[in-house]
């Protein structure tokens, strides 16, 4: 009976661990930085695990000994005849073991820190990320202005090419964290922080703000797609283009709603007359996976839900509820869906 319970517990633990290999998981590294961090984690697990087992063993031994002492001669006699010298030796050994364990951890942490600081930055991609309440602005930088572009809430990285991230904040302190790629780095208003990524494994990973930044902190996510260099180049070429012009009546009307209504006051769509700068750039909105910093999937349902009442989905966010007719809403969604 007891054995069955133990097996069940182990099975449950195994299942729980199996669920760990996800898209937002620091134990599933897809880049050098996360791999180094995982090394420190493993070292700590081994050192602390060994110490824990030792402490528990000594405790068990002490309990067993105490019980035997109760059966044996009176305690007073035992104290008189106690073996003080072995106990002292054991204590000295124990202290040395603690110092050794802490020393191993300190050296390991120092070495990992150094390897993080010396990350390979040859031929690095330069990306500026700005934290806003509650979304990420992502600017791919280039000395040639015609090769710069802006997107939001998504990061595309070519595998095996370093990326240097310049981290800034618009309003309050945020923290940039894609666990599969690297540790956290804060975004602080008025300051610039730097983070180097060396992505290695192709895949889509999820990042999240890791510093409480207000009401919708929980809904401030971004997607990081690590892809092979050809796919990245294709994506970049597509992002560099202005938005496609509207191709049917509904889309033309939708563009009118966007430009003549309130949308264009805050959002930019390159290639149209909408040049707002305070909201996310929507030039290639339909090519993204998620809407509103990971709150909804991009698609007709998501767009309609969001535009119908953004305050119901992310209460307190800075996208206002703009009242419009159902016809306008449908046209607007048709236009936004054409922005691939």
């Amino acid at each position: 009976m007891r054995r069955a319970a133990a097996w069940l517990a182990m099975g449950m633990a195994g299942l729980a661990l199996a669920a760990c290999s996800g898209a937002q998981d620091s134990l599933n590294p897809a880049g050098d930085q996360a791999a180094h961090t995982q090394d420190v984690w493993r070292l700590m697990l081994i050192v602390c695990g060994a110490m824990y087992v030792l402490v528990m063993a000594f405790l068990g031994w002490a309990l067993w000994r105490a019980r035997r002492a109760l059966d044996g001669p009176p305690l007073e006699d035992a104290v008189k005849s106690s073996a003080d010298a072995p106990m002292r030796n054991a204590l000295v050994g124990w202290t040395a073991l603690i110092i050794l364990g802490l020393g191993v951890l300190a050296v390991g942490s120092f070495l990992v820190d150094r390897s993080l600081a010396r990350a390979d930055t040859k031929d690095a991609l330069h990306i500026k990320i700005t934290g806003n309440q509650w979304w990420w602005q992502v600017e791919y930088q280039d000395p040639d202005p015609s090769r710069q572009f802006t997107t939001a809430n998504e990061l595309h990285l070519p595998a095996n090419r370093p990326a240097i991230l310049e981290l800034a904040a618009q309003d309050v302190i945020h923290s940039f964290w894609i666990p599969n790629l690297a540790g956290k780095e804060d975004l602080i208003p008025g300051r610039t922080n730097w983070l180097t990524l060396n992505p290695r494994r192709i895949g889509v990973y999820r990042g999240q703000c890791a510093e409480f930044c207000g009401l919708q902190h929980a809904q401030m996510a971004l997607d990081a797609t690590v892809e092979d260099p050809q796919a990245f180049e294709a994506w970049r070429q597509a992002q560099l283009k202005p938005a496609p012009p509207p191709s049917n009546d509904a889309q033309v009307r939708g563009q009118g709603v966007f430009i003549n209504g309130a949308c264009g006051s805050c959002h930019e769509i390159a290639g149209s007359d909408a040049h707002g700068r305070t909201g996310p750039d929507l030039t290639h909105l339909a090519s993204r996976r998620k809407l509103a910093a990971g709150a909804l999937p991009v698609g007709r349902d998501g767009l309609i839900a969001w535009l119908h009442d953004p305050q119901a989905i992310k209460p307190g966010n800075h996208m206002p509820l703009v009242h419009m007719s159902d016809q306008d809403l449908n046209d607007l969604v048709a236009y936004l869906q054409s922005l691939s």
């Binding site: 280039d142 000395p143 040639d144 090769r147 240097i164 300051r191 730097w194």
Partner: peptide, 14 residues
């Protein structure tokens, strides 16, 4: 002033 951590490679070829 902004700390100059890893020198931002502005002149890197893309």
């Amino acid at each position: 002033p902004t700390p100059a951590k890893p020198a931002a490679p502005t002149d890197q070829p893309r």
